[in-house]
């Protein structure tokens, strides 16, 4: 995958606060290429430990930053990939996540009160990975996500907010984990997601917007859970993702010719695997973890993938 972030560029430093997620994207991306041994795990796990706040029971985006649900999920995902969940104080983290649930079933991201269905997904996924879903009111969490459903079958960040492919992924995966698939109109949403494919082959996140590789992952995750991936053109989408790869660094950008980053690289790789491209490790679209990790944790498989495409990615 090559050098994924250049420390000499400004962009490296302005994403400092979300380094935890950066590590997760890198590690999960390597796992998708079956190349986890390319990065030594010890320093990464040490970094994860250093971002833990034992008083709160959550993880920060970087050393010296504040605890947030977003980075707590990333930390747990990293530990899960390395089979190191023992490092996590599951009781403390579960109590912290539970403390963020509101009376209407929603979740705030931290004590500062921002509500978003992204955080509902973070909460449900974190607790599912730790086997601690009993720590929260799952039915209330499902009901809140369902209340964010829109006229087009998609979901937004809060009730009344516009549908967005990233938010659709969070909500559909959250409902899959929480047993709330009855709240999804599979056909309407599956079709709306298929309509995200634009003439160049890539997927946009909302109607009449530009395509972007990261939506490949979010939309393919949702269509895999809904069993509707076959409603779009897998070959054209594969070609688009590959056209976003930069041949100098090997990384993948949002669009052809743009700067690459680790976020789009992971989502590109994971998307290709969900399209049925051979030679890649399947990333489970519900937990956003390699299939084998999810299997090891004894979690159910809540998605389906189409038959393999003819061309392998080697």
């Amino acid at each position: 995958m090559g050098c994924y972030v250049n420390r000499n560029e400004f962009e490296y430093w302005v994403t400092e606060h979300l380094r935890m997620s950066g590590v997760y994207w890198a590690v999960a991306g390597l796992a998708g290429l079956d190349a986890l041994d390319q990065l030594p795990s010890a320093p990464l796990l040490e970094f994860v430990d250093k971002c833990y706040d034992a008083q709160i029971g959550g993880y920060a985006g970087n050393v010296g930053h504040d605890v947030h649900l977003l980075y707590t999920l990333s930390a747990v995902q990293i530990a899960a990939i390395y089979d190191e969940l023992d490092r996590i104080d599951a009781d403390a983290v579960a109590a912290y996540v539970a403390s963020l649930q509101q009376a209407d079933g929603s979740f705030v991201g931290d004590k500062w009160g921002e509500v978003d269905t992204r955080f509902s997904y973070c909460a449900l996924c974190t607790l599912a990975l730790l086997g601690r879903l009993d720590a929260i009111d799952v039915d209330a969490a499902v009901a809140f996500v369902a209340s964010c459903r829109n006229f087009d079958g998609g979901f937004g960040a809060v009730p009344g907010a516009e549908s967005h492919a990233g938010q659709v992924f969070c909500c559909v995966a959250a409902l899959a984990i929480g047993g709330g698939m009855a709240h999804v109109d599979q056909d309407l949403l599956g079709w709306w997601l298929a309509e995200r494919q634009v003439p160049i082959g890539g997927l946009n996140g909302r109607p009449e917007k530009l395509p972007d590789v990261c939506y490949s992952w979010w939309i393919l995750s949702a269509t895999s859970i809904l069993d509707r991936t076959h409603w779009m053109d897998a070959g054209k989408l594969r070609d688009y993702i590959l056209s976003c790869q930069d041949w100098e660094t090997g990384g993948i950008a949002d669009r052809p010719g743009d700067w690459v980053d680790v976020f789009h690289t992971f989502f590109g790789i994971a998307g290709l695997a969900l399209l049925g491209c051979g030679g890649l490790t399947l990333i489970d679209p519900v937990y956003a973890l390699p299939e084998a990790v999810v299997l090891r944790l004894g979690l159910p498989r809540l998605f389906s993938v189409p038959p393999p495409l003819a061309i392998n990615i080697e």
């Binding site: 962009e11 530009l210 990261c214 950008a253 949002d254 010719g257 743009d258 700067w259 976020f263 789009h264």
Partner: peptide
Amino acid sequence: MLHGRLKKKTPAALEAARA
């Protein structure tokens, strides 16, 4: 997360100044 940042090669003569 980089969005819409076109990868432009700075000419070698200007690269030092840019850097």
